[in-house]
């Protein structure tokens, strides 16, 4: 039993695209201060789940509560108020390529919090230094830096407003293992410094083990197992075992190939 209050509560979440059912009655509780990794093979709807939570997509049915407030159906200023407490690192960093790095990092500070440009620039440089980029990078543009550096800037942007909840969408995808390790360590550091609740979507077990306290396994649109990260090797769940050991003859590969599992 967790002593902290529930920060994010998902109940009966469903989402379909035409005839493809991506989320099927999904339930999950994320407690305040937890760092949870949702694992699962590519194409199982992990990113869709994340987009539903942050309001980029709307579920067909079900409930999403953040700090006990129902956020499904919130629009306009009400949704913006909720989103001011969130930070997100996108899979491809999603930096605004028409803006220099410092404006990318301080975007939320200027746009949503009304900070002046000079103060925002100072804050942005602090955040860039926090993720290992020196002040000399502030005026460069996203196209001028490497994919790994873009992830760092994306992380700096996500933590710039000191949000209570952080989301990481495949944080190590598309970068080399060494840079992946750097990003993982930075994520752990930033989450701890902020005392934030974190939700990471990944299919990289190494990343999940590094970042998360808890792991939730997603399969066929549902969460099929939740537990502490150090118990994942002894989960007793066949699907989890198959995923972390990458076995081809499994529920997972059958589901992805569209055949029924034995």
């Amino acid at each position: 039993m967790n002593e902290h209050p529930v920060k994010i509560s998902l109940r009966g979440l469903t989402k379909s695209f035409g005839k493809k059912h991506v989320l099927r009655n999904l339930d999950l509780d994320i407690f305040q201060g937890d760092s949870v990794a949702i694992i699962g093979p590519s194409g199982t709807g992990k990113s869709v789940l994340l987009k539903n939570i942050v309001g980029i997509q709307t579920p067909d049915s079900g409930s999403i509560k953040i700090d006990s407030e129902e956020v499904v159906g919130l629009t306009g200023n009400a949704r913006d108020r909720v989103n001011r407490n969130l930070g997100m690192l996108f899979q491809g960093a999603a930096l605004f390529d028409s803006l220099p790095l410092w404006e990318n990092v301080s975007f939320g500070l200027m746009s949503a919090q009304g900070l002046s440009r000079s103060d925002a620039r100072q804050k942005a440089i602090e955040r860039l230094q926090q993720v290992g980029l020196d002040a000399g990078n502030a005026d460069r543009f996203p196209a001028d830096i490497s994919a790994g550096a873009q992830k760092r800037v994306g992380l700096a942007r996500a933590i710039a407003t000191k949000p209570e909840i952080l989301f990481f969408d495949e944080p190590t995808t598309g970068i080399d293992p060494v840079m992946g390790d750097v990003i993982n360590k930075l994520i752990v550091k930033c989450v701890k410094e902020l005392g934030a609740t974190a939700l990471t979507i990944t299919h990289d077990m190494e990343s999940a083990r590094r970042i998360a306290d808890k792991v939730a396994m997603m399969h066929a649109g549902k969460i099929v197992w939740v537990g502490d990260v150090d118990k994942i090797d002894d989960s007793g769940n066949e699907i989890v075992d198959q995923f972390i050991h990458g076995r081809l003859d499994s529920h997972i590969s059958n589901a992805r190939l569209g055949t029924s599992a034995a």
Partner: peptide, 20 residues
């Protein structure tokens, strides 16, 4: 420009930064 922002998730990023 806007199409590239859409397919590279920059428009989604705007929403998460509480910007319409």
């Amino acid at each position: 420009e806007i199409g590239t922002m859409r397919v590279t998730e920059q428009i989604d990023a705007l929403s998460t930064l509480a910007t319409n």
